[in-house]
Design a protein around this nucleic acid. Sequence first.
DNA 1: GAGTGGTCTAGACCACTTC
DNA 2: AAGTGGTCTAGACCACTCG
Lengths: 249, 249
Amino acid sequence: MAETQPDAVKLDGAGPVYDQIRRAIRDLVVSGAWPPGTGVPPEHALMEQLGASRMTVHRALVQLAREGLIVRRRRSGTIVASPPASHAMLDILSIPEEVEQLGQAYSYDVLARGDGRPAAEVAERFGLRRSDKVAHLLVLHRADGKPHVLEERVIHVAAVPGVAGEDFAKTPPGDWLLQHSLWSQAEHAISAVGAQAEEAGLLAIAVGEPCLLVERRTWNQDRPVTAVRLLYPGPRHRFVGRFGPYGQI
Amino acid sequence: MAETQPDAVKLDGAGPVYDQIRRAIRDLVVSGAWPPGTGVPPEHALMEQLGASRMTVHRALVQLAREGLIVRRRRSGTIVASPPASHAMLDILSIPEEVEQLGQAYSYDVLARGDGRPAAEVAERFGLRRSDKVAHLLVLHRADGKPHVLEERVIHVAAVPGVAGEDFAKTPPGDWLLQHSLWSQAEHAISAVGAQAEEAGLLAIAVGEPCLLVERRTWNQDRPVTAVRLLYPGPRHRFVGRFGPYGQI
DNA sequence: GAGTGGTCTAGACCACTTC
DNA sequence: AAGTGGTCTAGACCACTCG
């Protein structure tokens, strides 16, 4: 059931009323003030509180529901949605889920970890400043015991303070971050590279074998949260998406 | 300026009125009955014609505008939009544009062409039936004279009859198809592969060198239109996309 | 100036779901 | 039965922009 919501919706007077309402509630959601499960006030409550007609309030809420920030159900009301675990073509946030959906048994090992200011070569690879304090991890994910993907990740300690006390023994870093950090923006790059010697050894493939490299960086309100390089071995990995001429289906 | 529109909007009585209106107009657009530039009747005309209130008509049109199918301007009215040339992360529809945006000079050669029923190996590679009549093309695209991407494509003659009389001397097949075919759905797959001997020769790279393989198939109302395999050599090609936790930005 | 879309209101009825 | 959102109406005023 929904918790009640603590903060009040405040309009800023800029632009159409329905958009003021939409932005005000969106900000409460993405800032974390209204975490997932929080109850959004019913339409007539917002109507009275904001002095707007029900259609105007409704319009704002419909749009937020379409954007996926809230979930609306008759009688039981409107609550803040849980961010979807996965949504777009290239968005593999949970590797355990990905492996299990392939019907294979998932396991992983943290192969290396370092905390502190990054080495020059690491800073270069992830686009970091040398002054950023990060946790630096190398993780091998396995499907049915065989190497599935090699993950190299940095996590910004300033954005995720809890990372210092976490050893990732029970949950791999990607999944752990989903529960212990907020993000508002991400950037993906995908490319084909040949496996380097060390990578090839860990992935049990030949040096130079083609791999799909997915690089993802995420931010929360323009502050970097994490950056990851996922190296998928060989030609057996494909990323698939469907869409129409006017956008994703 | 907008042409007037020939066909009338017809509702089907299924579901909410605003959605009936939306679907009716969407169908006229995607079927090609209202080509880009066609004038959509003004709100009050649709109101009278359909017996709905203006808010209801407006709601349908707003949604279509948000989906990008129509463009609305005050005073001058609403017209059917031109499909965007490019829209999603992996959607490189025009290779000439892609090359020119990199600031390089574009050129291309049609290396081979065959028309008729596909060889077994081609049918396999593109997921065709042996009975499908297709044009089969091999095209090398160059940037500043150097191989940029190798394109192997099949075009379904049933969906694009004009392909039989076109030699692609002036326009590469991808761009030509944008002007001579309609599509409603597409599927992408992206993977990393090693270059085969023939491909390596054409792309001037070593055999086995990692390449990014983009495979795209498009349909119009469930009828296949074209399928293409784009082989980008080496690690220098990247596909980049940005988005937020609730969808693409 | 006039035609178009953009926004907003006040109220109504309905559908669904939980209590 | 009652509370919630879903839809719809009839009308209003405003903003923009073309002729």
